[in-house]
C-alpha cells in the first residue's frame, strides 16, 4: 500500500496545528512578554498553512526544491521579526522544531500497523523540518547582523562630535578605535566644522582611543594632512604614556605633527598660535 504522506498531513491540518500549539504553550521557551498567545497562534497557523500547501509527494524528499520558495519566505520573515523582537536563537529554534513533534505524532496515529513505512515517512518529515531549522538560523543571524550594522552606523554618526572650544579653535574627542571608514567620518565632520566656524586650529583628542598602531597612526596623519590642506593647523592631544611607548616601539614617525599630552596643553599651544593670553583677573 502506497501512502501519500503529504495528503495525510494536509487532511490532518487542524489536528497538527492544535498539537503544535499545545506543545508550544507548555514549553518553557514560551515568551508571553514578547508575543501574545493569539499572535503566536496566527504565526503558527500561517506557517502550517504554507507548509502543507507547498508540500506534495514529489518534493517531500527534496528540500532544495524551488516549490518550497513560499514556505522559506514565510519562515524567513518570521525568523527575522523574531530576531528583531529579541528572541533567543534557542527560542526561535524550538518554535520550528516543536512542529516536528506535532507532525510525527500525527503520522504515528495515521500509520499504525506498518513500522517500516512509519520510519521512512518520519525520516522524510524530519529531514524537511531540519532544513527549515537551518533556514531559520541563517535568517535569524542575518536579522541580528542587520541590527549590529545599524548600530555601527549609529555609533559612527554620534561618536564624532566637534566642539567649539574658542573662537577659531575647534576640538574633537575621538572615542574608540579608528578604522578607515571611521577616519573618513572624523575627517568629514572636522573639516566641515572648520569651514563652518572658519577656525584656524583643530585639536584632535585621542584620550579615548584604546591603542595606536601604525594603521591608526596613518589615519591620524591623513587627518592632519587634510586639515593643513584646508589651511588650518591640527594638534593631536591626549597621548597617554602607553601610546607614546608603542609609537616609538613601532617606529611610527609623528615628527610632522604637533602632539600634546593633554587637551589643556594643546589649548594653551593653540592660544599661543593665535596670540591669545589667559590671565587671572585682578578683581577680588
Amino acid at each position: 500500500m502506497k501512502l501519500d504522506t503529504a495528503k495525510v498531513l494536509q487532511k490532518r491540518k487542524k489536528q497538527i496545528l492544535e498539537l503544535w500549539m499545545k506543545n508550544q504553550l507548555v514549553d518553557f521557551s514560551l515568551r508571553e512578554d514578547l508575543m501574545s498567545n493569539d499572535e503566536l497562534a496566527v504565526q503558527s497557523e500561517e506557517l502550517v498553512n504554507v507548509l502543507l500547501q507547498t508540500l506534495d509527494n514529489g518534493n517531500i524528499e527534496d528540500v532544495q526544491s524551488p516549490s518550497f520558495e513560499p514556505l522559506y519566505e514565510v519562515l524567513e520573515s518570521i525568523s527575522l521579526s523574531r530576531a528583531k523582537q529579541g528572541y533567543s536563537p534557542r527560542e526561535t529554534g524550538t518554535f520550528v522544531f516543536s512542529l516536528k513533534d506535532a507532525l510525527l505524532t500525527t503520522l504515528q496515529l495515521e500509520i499504525k500497523n506498518d513500522p517500516q513505512q512509519l520510519l521512512e515517512e518520519s525520516m522524510k518529515v524530519s529531514r524537511l523540518i531540519d532544513s527549515l531549522g537551518i533556514v531559520t538560523f541563517e535568517t535569524f543571524i542575518k536579522g541580528r547582523e542587520e541590527v549590529i550594522l545599524r548600530q555601527t552606523d549609529e555609533i559612527a554618526e554620534i561618536s564624532t562630535p566637534v566642539i567649539r572650544v574658542w573662537d577659531g579653535i575647534v576640538a574633537m574627542p575621538i572615542i574608540g578605535t579608528l578604522d578607515s571608514s571611521r577616519t573618513q567620518v572624523v575627517m568629514e565632520n572636522l573639516l566641515q566644522e572648520i569651514v563652518l566656524t572658519s577656525s584656524s586650529i583643530a585639536i584632535l583628542d585621542i584620550s579615548g582611543v584604546p591603542a595606536v598602531d601604525s594603521l591608526v597612526a596613518q589615519h591620524l596623519i591623513k587627518t592632519v594632512s587634510a586639515t593643513r590642506l584646508m589651511g588650518a593647523e591640527c594638534i593631536i592631544s591626549g597621548i597617554r604614556p602607553e601610546i607614546a611607548q608603542t609609537v616609538v616601539h613601532l617606529g611610527i614617525d609623528l615628527s610632522g605633527i604637533v602632539t600634546k599630552a593633554t587637551l589643556a596643553s594643546a589649548l594653551r599651544y593653540a592660544f599661543s598660535l593665535v596670540q591669545l593670553e589667559v590671565r587671572k583677573s585682578n578683581v577680588k
Binding site: E188, L191, K222, L229
Partner: peptide, 16 residues
C-alpha cells in the same frame, strides 16, 4: 579648498 577635495587629495597621496 573644499573638505571633500582635501580628503581626496590626501588619499590620492598628493599633500601639495
Amino acid at each position: 579648498m573644499q573638505p571633500a577635495v582635501a580628503i581626496t587629495l590626501v588619499e590620492l597621496g598628493l599633500p601639495l
